[in-house]
């Protein structure tokens, strides 16, 4: 039931966001493009319906710190170390910019 209601919220949220084309996103297109790989597991816009952490609206600082730690093997993970190693520090900054900027959209 919890999942059902979450999915409902998600559907409404995405419907609202769908009004603004993703490509016109304020955080720039590069971050959006990189984020496309994240959202297959973390949910559309990083809104996760299940056990995988949500990225939507997380702070830029937190996302950068966490991803760099995964990348350096300084933070326990299952697959994220293997994934984070595929991105440069600049990629990580762009991804963090994108997901952290999403909170503003929700208020529109």
């Amino acid at each position: 039931m919890r999942i059902k209601s979450l999915l409902c919220t998600l559907a409404i949220l995405t419907a609202i966001i769908a009004g603004v084309p993703m490509s016109l996103h304020p955080a720039g297109k590069e971050g959006l493009l990189l984020s496309l790989s994240c959202t297959s597991c973390h949910g559309t816009y990083g809104l996760s319906p299940g056990a995988i952490p949500t990225l939507y609206g997380k702070s830029r600082k937190y996302l950068i710190k966490t991803l760099i730690e995964f990348r350096n093997g300084d933070r326990d993970s299952t697959i994220m170390e293997r994934i984070a190693k595929g991105y440069t520090e600049n990629d990580i900054r762009l991804i963090a910019n994108y997901f952290s900027s999403l909170t503003k959209k929700k208020k529109k």
């Binding site: 559907a11 597991c41 559309t44 996760s48 299940g50 056990a51 299952t78 697959i79």
Partner: peptide, 19 residues
């Protein structure tokens, strides 16, 4: 933990496709 994340992955990707 990977079994839990596998289910999480499934919930996310099916939502990303059909939700």
């Amino acid at each position: 933990a990977e079994a839990i994340y596998a289910q999480g992955w499934y919930d996310s990707i099916t939502q990303d496709m059909f939700g």
